[in-house]
Design a protein around this nucleic acid. Structure first.
Lengths: 230, 230
DNA sequence: ATCTGCCAGTGACTTCGGTCACAGGCATGC
DNA sequence: GCATGCCTGTGACCGAAGTCACTGGCAGAT
């Protein structure tokens, strides 16, 4: 067994979708799995393309997004290992509903539509797992709709900052990991509004910005805003 | 077999989810299915409630929606017979992500979470069907996100009018089937903007309004707007 | 008939979102 | 070095979106 096969097996074992499989079943699946490499920025597929199969992130990071003419983008999801991508269009026979792009250099497993469907029929537990994964995906989409429909850019920005801060050691300070441009795509607006709103939050003493370092200064104040009349 | 049982069987047979079942399997499922009645306006479940099972619309019509404090609502889907509702939260163990309400007097089949999961394990074809159904649901949600993120109220209103017109005999004239309030919830805005935008479309000679009758007057003009820099 | 509640239209106003244009910073590559 | 390209901040501006308040219509209930 070569190094690539080993990676494939390891990733399959770590992926929730395939947790229920036995070792031998996983080996069988692995033999029908491709390992693909993508450079940062490279596009995996574009919305509207026919769906050829499902991906699992082995390393790196992938973002799923819609783009408009006019050049704006709206991010729907960002997935790292060991999550799967595009499980859904595999089943309803339609095209990919959105585009996907590697954020960093990435390796992905690719399983063809046919193989995956066959597996689901053979091992219903896998299908149930898919449903579970898809459930959380749907929840996230509903969350995005809620935010776009009911809340403001400022709101969404604050929520985004909190999400980042929670993931940092002291839950207060973190380094902006993306450009304003990308942040804008994630919260559904444009670069300039991100810049302005960050500036406004700072001048109101709610956060502190130093280069790419952002610190939550007045957490209660920010939380109060999130709570108010969503 | 009484009348209710007959309804249940008939609806199960017509529902895509259960198309793959044999008559005897459907009969077994029917015996574990409840028939529930809801009056127009009655709420089936509210977002955040624990998910107890899945519904199938037997007659009438149900809308799925999120509501904000401040009293606004955003409609996510409207389902008539023989479609199912809330297939998804059944699987990921979470709460209902949105609320559901009968639009008209309705009868719904209710299948408990347990029974439905068991069925999916036993008959993987059912699970695959669920995935297919859920796929189209996800597409619609992505479509909503796209519209909210990239387009304007005017845009969404025109798209909505087209959707209605397509469903009418001459593809031009139809009766507004809902209040402005409800229309606003469906396209993600407020009553006043619906009223104003309808008025504006008429004064620009694009549509004609007479009471609740709406006629598409200048279809090319409207289409051009939909096409422009989405 | 009157009262109540929902629905529709509209004017005045505020604020939010977004566009355009431009200037400066900082890295990379030649 | 300089040129190039991407990222950021900001001022000016415009139109869209939303809020508030009030009017009048219409249907159902009593």
């Amino acid at each position: 067994m070569n190094a690539e096969d080993e990676i494939v097996l390891r990733v399959l074992a770590a992926t929730p979708l395939f947790a229920a499989l036995s070792d031998s079943e996983r080996a069988a699946l692995a033999s029908r799995t491709q390992l693909r490499r993508y450079a940062a920025g490279q596009v995996l597929f574009t919305e509207g393309e026919p769906c050829s199969g499902l991906y699992v992130v082995a390393s790196g990071c992938v973002r799923i997004y819609k783009s408009s003419r006019g050049g704006r983008e709206q991010v729907l999801a960002i997935e790292g290992p060991p999550h799967s991508i595009a499980e859904l269009p595999v089943f309803d026979g339609g095209d990919y509903p959105a585009s996907a792009q590697a954020v960093a250099d990435s390796r992905l497993l690719f399983i063809s539509r046919r193989d995956f469907r066959a597996l689901c029929l053979e091992r219903p537990e896998v299908a149930l797992k898919v449903l579970q994964v898809v459930g959380s995906r749907l929840r996230r989409l509903v969350g995005i709709i809620e935010e776009l429909s009911f809340s403001t850019v400022r709101h969404r920005l604050i929520a985004w900052l909190f999400k980042r801060a929670e993931a940092s050691p002291d839950r207060k300070t973190f380094t902006l990991p993306v450009s304003h441009q990308e942040l804008a795509a994630e919260i559904g607006t444009v670069r300039e509004l991100v810049s302005r709103n960050l500036g406004r939050l700072q001048s109101e003493g709610l956060i502190h910005i130093e280069g790419r370092e952002i610190t939550i200064v007045n957490r209660p104040g920010l939380e109060a805003e999130l709570a108010s009349r969503l």
